[in-house]
């Protein structure tokens, strides 16, 4: 059974979590009306062999959305970060680039 170390609650069985797939994708800006970009975000996924960034929500725990790096071959969980931190970090990076 996959075990995920929730940064808030500690290590827990995966059955406490909701899986929500690829976390590498980035939602287009809401004002973006380009159907192709949204289609890409909503429907298209890479299927990597090896490390995969994915969203899990600790639904039956703290309810935080987590960004989990998991090896799809060994199922080893490589890292777990709160999605909100990852998101804020990405926003800051963008600002710096700009």
């Amino acid at each position: 059974m996959l075990r995920i170390a929730c940064p808030y609650c500690g290590e827990r069985d995966y059955i406490e979590f909701l899986y929500a797939g690829d976390a590498a994708r980035e939602m287009p800006a809401l004002s973006d009306t380009d159907i192709d970009r949204w289609t890409d975000f909503v429907f298209f996924r890479d299927d990597p062999k090896g490390e995969h960034a994915e969203y899990w929500q600790h639904q039956h725990g703290c309810r935080q959305w987590l960004k989990v790096i998991r090896d799809t071959v060994t199922h080893r969980v490589i890292s777990v970060t709160p999605a909100i931190e990852a998101g804020l970090q990405a926003d800051e990076d963008k600002v710096e680039v700009a």
């Binding site: 976390a23 969203y55 929500q57 959305w65 909100i84 804020l88 926003d91």
Partner: peptide, 11 residues
């Protein structure tokens, strides 16, 4: 709602 607030719009 939690997904949107924590991933897309943490601001």
């Amino acid at each position: 709602l939690e997904f949107l607030l924590q991933t897309a719009w943490p601001d």
